[in-house]
Design a protein around this nucleic acid. Structure first.
Length: 443
RNA sequence: GGCCACGUGGCGGAGUGGUGACGCAGCGGACUGCAAAUCCGCGUACCCCGGUUCAAUUCCGGGCGUGGCCUCCA
């Protein structure tokens, strides 16, 4: 069975046929590194990690290139860097470098804990300023961009294909716009490719003076450098579809005169307990703080229980349910060696990455296929074990179990039940098996 | 205001123009000193109103609700 994926460009489920099976190419928009990533950021990282694993399975590990960028130039970063500089005596440029390096490291730690493989390439925007300038010069030369008032802007009117991804006509967008149009723009929809930096803002020398790139140009430049003018898959959150991805298409196709991406994939939005996640509502969770209470595998599994295109409601009840299922499965799968997933499981993933159907297949699978499927999805049991072992005093529990079993042997059940209840009050659940008494932490 | 997505049993969540996926919880049974764990069994749901159809949860139109984008936010 071939892989089929829903292409946002056509809104249809299409068979995935790589441009070059020897080098399948995927780009996913990565984080802007100014603060800890939150649970909403975890969704694309996990979803496209599963797609990466599936592509590697189908085409071979050496034949898939996955690029996920690091956005380390951005006005939110600049604002934070300015704060740090003011408080520390560092220069703004030093503060920016330190902030982005630290945040990038934290991001990698977080998504690693969530079971995500490292991408093939993780390019940083600031290391590709030259490529961005070259791309902008090409756009100007071809009449798709113009310099005005220290800025360089993309001329949306020069691109007849503009709007094909988000399916908006420029008339609709102008009618719906609620912001003032900057006076230097020729068209209301024109967007910034390059903007000037003052002395307090990080900047790079360019043909248009010292400045910094606009938001969209970095992805076009880095995707082009590592994946070529045309590549197979571009992924990201649905919120990025417009304007970010629409503008990427405009830039790359007008500069290269070729299709930019064959298939666009967008994951759905995440809510928390039925409401929009926001700092003001107090339901904002970083990956880092969730990892303090929940194994990364539980967070990962919880995410994969919903199809990637659906909206997802992140809840703690769901997390508890996910923990329970994984625990049950790990008890069965742990001793097995060299497991392999079965065809039902793989076909579910090939069908537009249907992870809920794949998980359902695991419920029906034998132990070997179950272990194979879990391994395929990136579950290892390591963090679950760590979580179980670090929270409790194992020596005291072992002593209590010994005392209880002595009481049971003497048929003193009042005493044995008292000991069991005492442990239960501490969150320890006992299980009497033919091989002896075991325990686990109750969730 | 404009554009777009989603709305399935107590809960989570696939899928389909016509035999009620799957999981969690719950209930019954086995097991157990009693439990827990495990195993076996048990469930006639598709937001509302129209339309198309022999037949709609599934297709079309409208409404309501939730959310996204248009503006920094994933």
């Amino acid at each position: 069975m071939p892989i089929r994926l829903t292409n946002s460009l056509t809104r249809a489920k299409e068979e995935f046929v790589p441009l070059d099976p020897a080098n399948v190419r995927m780009y996913v928009c990565g984080p802007t590194v100014y603060d800890f990533a939150h649970i909403g950021n975890a969704r694309p990282a996990i979803v496209f990690d599963v797609l990466f694993r599936l592509l590697r399975h189908e085409y071979g590990d050496a034949h898939v290139t996955y690029v996920r960028n690091i956005t380390d130039v951005d006005d939110k970063i600049n604002a934070r860097a300015a704060e740090i500089a003011a408080n520390s005596g560092m220069s703004v440029e030093q503060a920016r470098a330190e902030l982005t390096a630290t945040t990038e490291r934290q991001y990698i730690e977080d998504v690693t804990a969530l079971g995500c493989l490292p991408p093939t390439v993780s390019p940083r925007a600031t290391q590709h300023i030259g490529e961005m300038i070259a791309l902008i010069e090409q756009l100007i030369a071809d009449g798709h961009a113009y310099a005005a008032d220290g800025h360089v802007l993309f001329d949306v009117a020069s691109d007849p294909g503009y709007g094909k991804l988000s399916r908006r006509s420029t008339d609709d967008m102008i009618a719906g716009a609620r912001v003032e149009v900057a006076p230097y723009k020729k068209g209301a929809m024109d967007f910034v490719l390059w903007k000037p930096s003052d002395d307090a803002t990080p900047g790079w020398d360019s043909p248009w003076g010292r400045g910094r790139p606009g938001w969209h140009i970095e992805c076009s430049a880095m995707a082009g450098k590592y994946l070529g003018d045309t590549f197979d898959i571009h992924g990201g959150g649905i919120d990025l579809q417009f304007p970010h991805h629409e503008n990427e298409i405009a830039q790359s196709e007008c500069a290269h005169h070729k299709p930019y991406v064959k298939m666009w994939l967008h994951n759905g939005f995440l809510q928390v307990e039925g409401e929009k996640m926001s700092k003001s509502q107090g339901n904002f969770f970083t990956i880092r703080e969730l990892l303090a209470d929940w194994p990364g595998e539980v967070l990962r599994f919880n995410m994969l229980r919903t199809h990637y295109r659906q909206p997802i409601d992140f809840t703690f009840a769901g997390l508890r349910e996910s923990w329970k299922m994984l625990e049950r499965w790990y008890a069965v799968t742990e001793p097995l060696a060299n497991p392999a997933p079965d065809a039902v499981f793989l076909d579910a993933l090939r069908d537009d990455l249907n992870t809920p159907a794949a998980i359902a297949a695991l419920h029906q699978a034998d132990d070997l296929a179950l272990a194979g499927g879990l391994g395929f999805l990136g579950f290892s049991n390591v963090q679950m074990k760590i979580a179980a072992k670090t929270e409790v005093d194992t020596v005291a529990i072992a002593d209590a179990i010994t005392a209880r079993n002595a009481a049971r042997k003497a048929k003193n059940f009042a005493e044995s039940d008292r000991i069991r209840d005492e442990l239960l009050a501490k969150g320890i659940v006992l299980k009497d098996t033919p091989q002896g008494t075991t325990w686990e932490v109750k969730r």
